[in-house]
Design a protein around this nucleic acid. Sequence first.
DNA 1: ACTGGTATCGGTACCGGTATCCATATCAGT
DNA 2: ACTGATATGGATACCGGTACCGATACCAGT
Lengths: 337, 337
Amino acid sequence: MKKKATLADVAAAAGVSKMTASRALRGVRDVSKANIARVRQAAQELGYVGNFLAASLSSQRSDLIGVVVPNLANIVFAQVLSGISEGIAGSGMQPVFGVTDYDPDKEYDIIRNMLSWQPAGLIVTGLDLPEATRRLLENAEIPVVQIMDIDGEPVDACVGFSHIRAGEEIAQALIAAGLRKFGYAGCALTMDVRAAKRRIGFQRALIQNGLDFVEEVEAFELSSIGAGRLLTEQLLKKAPDVDCIYFSNDDVAAGGLFYCLEAGIAVPGKVALAGFNGLSIASGFPGRIATVRTPRREIGRKAAEIICSALDGKPAGGEAIELTPEVDLGLIGARKG
Amino acid sequence: MKKKATLADVAAAAGVSKMTASRALRGVRDVSKANIARVRQAAQELGYVGNFLAASLSSQRSDLIGVVVPNLANIVFAQVLSGISEGIAGSGMQPVFGVTDYDPDKEYDIIRNMLSWQPAGLIVTGLDLPEATRRLLENAEIPVVQIMDIDGEPVDACVGFSHIRAGEEIAQALIAAGLRKFGYAGCALTMDVRAAKRRIGFQRALIQNGLDFVEEVEAFELSSIGAGRLLTEQLLKKAPDVDCIYFSNDDVAAGGLFYCLEAGIAVPGKVALAGFNGLSIASGFPGRIATVRTPRREIGRKAAEIICSALDGKPAGGEAIELTPEVDLGLIGARKG
DNA sequence: ACTGGTATCGGTACCGGTATCCATATCAGT
DNA sequence: ACTGATATGGATACCGGTACCGATACCAGT
């Protein structure tokens, strides 16, 4: 029955004006101790909750930070989110998440939707946005940070690393370790632009060394352990003599490892596996999978910090922050040695 | 410079009143084709985005559904979220996520925060809420669905399954398969109430059969593969003769499996492993881990549907929907014969 | 007693939309 | 030509807060 209590109700109950009640609850200057206590108490008794909508509409600002990621099934993004939480801790900001499922249309809708909440800033995954989406962000007039990638032109600021270079570097390392016959197994490369960039970098390094992929297999579903198993089986059937398989990420690589373990194929003795991301699943068999460890939490934190500092007047102005991932060959180093 | 276009700007540009513009953009009755086109065009040209805050404040309703989960690192909740997305598809609702990290205080804050957005409904993980949090939900006067669990008293409606019974059932099945010497390995049981409930159910079934855990080990960190490895090593050191280990979930169990594989312990030949959730990581080695497959996506979908239908006038009124998880013994059935 | 300063409060005008109700135009039917 | 129904547009009053500025009270200093 009692429809939700409003600030006016609280004020009335405390015997003060709306304004005083508002100030008391927000802890803003110029309210006597006595009134603060009275208002607090009244709010408590009425179960007053406040109305974010009215507050931000009126004050023309909000403490929301919109975060757009492609996918939550991949733990990588969960970790980015956790980094973001860290980065905004204490700033009073509140993150709001949106998931695009790698669908550009959905991405456009979600970003538009988020903008309609008048967020203070936006964190968006990826640099390669459709034109319309890009315009949306450009017109938003709020700080925008694009994360995970730096191979491209950000709308505003960006934090991430070069996937092309990451692919190149692990390829160089694997070649230096003596591997020569490379296969590739990837999932959903048309959707996952960044995985595609890594593949390109990897292949570029191969070619510079007079090599190339001996064989490639691809699945169109999203990456998963199961897909990794199947792809690996396919690849080894087509090209049994590869001595290294590069996977689009660690999930797929883990599937490959599991397949090899059950099939009795020594890893990395007979065939070396390389993935991407340094996921904990790969740590289930320490060192078996070569990987590139990426600073995900760091990226989230940095992105959040950029937004927060941009809000403190400092105009971000197209910062591009490059973090460096770290190649980890695991047991491969010891393979031939 | 041009500060963001408002509806008034669009209306002016289209040569109509604010109301007509509002109606045209929302596709509500009684606007001529000609004006709809004019308004649409004007909105397009001005890059008008709309203001969710003002709209919901004015109309006294919102299309937000708040979703509170404890953790995103555990894929289970990502899948619940994806089920929720399915469930609200086409209803025009929009989910907003909050993560509590299993912290009751944070949970309270997040729920309070969400309520201040005047959401149309709330989906909250778990039945066991602190008193203050519970009151918050009771006073909210919006549909609330608690998910994942049904062992307890919901504030409003709930969708899930009985963790106690899930524990009992897999225990019964394992006993029936001939296992007798059980060990337990779990993570963060004080935080993860539902894992604790499963343990209780499991133990209850053991006792009913004149058995009990031979040995238990626990870690206080959140569940992970790494923790599973260590716990398993510890447990097998303390009690080398267990023939079955029950883990708090599949992540931990997978760690156990990996440990055994590397230590050359046959699974499930020498020791059987049982977890919970039917996670894809366990499917990396099909059948090796006994598990209870839970309908996570289903839970999310159902919860979303309850909220949506509650909003269509149908007062939900304390529905408690029990879904049944499914015991999967994997290779254990074949173990002894 | 008068002035000026400080600490507290309240009144009013919004923020950007939407609900509601009223006004006007158009047209068929008699 | 007049009536009433139907279709369409606009005016006004909010929704629940906050910014801004002015009002009041009280006290010290001269």
